[in-house]
Amino acid sequence: MIEFTNVSKTYPGGVKAIDDISLSIGHGEFVVLLGPSGCGKTTLLRMVNQLEELTEGEIAVEGSSIHDLNKIDMRRNIGYVIQSNGLFPNMTIEDNVMVVPAMLGWSKEKKKERFEYLMNLIGMPPETYRKNFPHELSGGQQQRIGVARALAADPPVMLMDEPFGALDPIIRARIQEEFLDIQRTLKKTILFVSHDIDEAIKLADRIVLLKDGKLQQFDRPEELLNRPANEFVSEFVGEDSVLKSLSLYQVQDMKAKLTLPEASDGLDGTVFKHGDSLRYVLSHLLHPTPKPVYFERQEGGLAGPISVAHIEAFVREMTA
């Protein structure tokens, strides 16, 4: 879907912003470009829609090299969301969202229908916001509109440059969840820039970790956490990488890996479901006044009581 082949960018004066990067991103994959500031993640993203030139190598989107495509046409076919939302203050919300469809010459009915679909998708009633202007919305709402605008012409590929970076933590977490939900239905191929490891772990199918324009590791989040490729990666994921990795696993993963004791019925305790994060389970176990923890079993009944030792055994298993 998106293929980077030996991509480099050298600024006049010899500074290498991007150094020989090759990546292959599959259809419907959510890839987060992660790294400290100045690592080249934004540059790499902006190369895809040719807002940045590349000096060497090649990028192909859906099988065709970006050099062969018309810059303007290809950009209209790629969703683009940026941190400071970049909404146009002179246009209403409807006009903002429908910028690309308008350029593509969609009919009035088709635009209206699409606008309503998108607004419902992002959970903002279309009739309430149609005639509003961007400055009348909150930061979180503006960013939702930014996402809707990028989705307007239903592009197969989305480029997102720290889209939730300027939001406060509570709103950010909520919008991340909403966006994951949207992604589960729409299955876009997404390149997403972030400097926040927690955001990357939460959202990504795979993470590209960059440093000084060089690729450090391109892997699934749990691999990045459990098997860092080098010193920099382990430093970047942090001392609490095991804790972070627990948020990637759910109760069902643990049940699949370990044989857990059968629990008799009618016990007093906390019961976790298949999809619950192991991070919550651990937090529960470490509570000053813990209640016994049980897992729901597929075939009925409960497994447990679960102890910290079980979590320990699971982590050993996963990192082995």
Partner: peptide, 14 residues
């Protein structure tokens, strides 16, 4: 706002 111009270019405005 440079962000507005960047967004406009990124969405394929001439």
């Amino acid at each position: 706002d440079p962000a507005a111009k960047d967004a406009a270019a990124g969405m394929g405005m001439t």
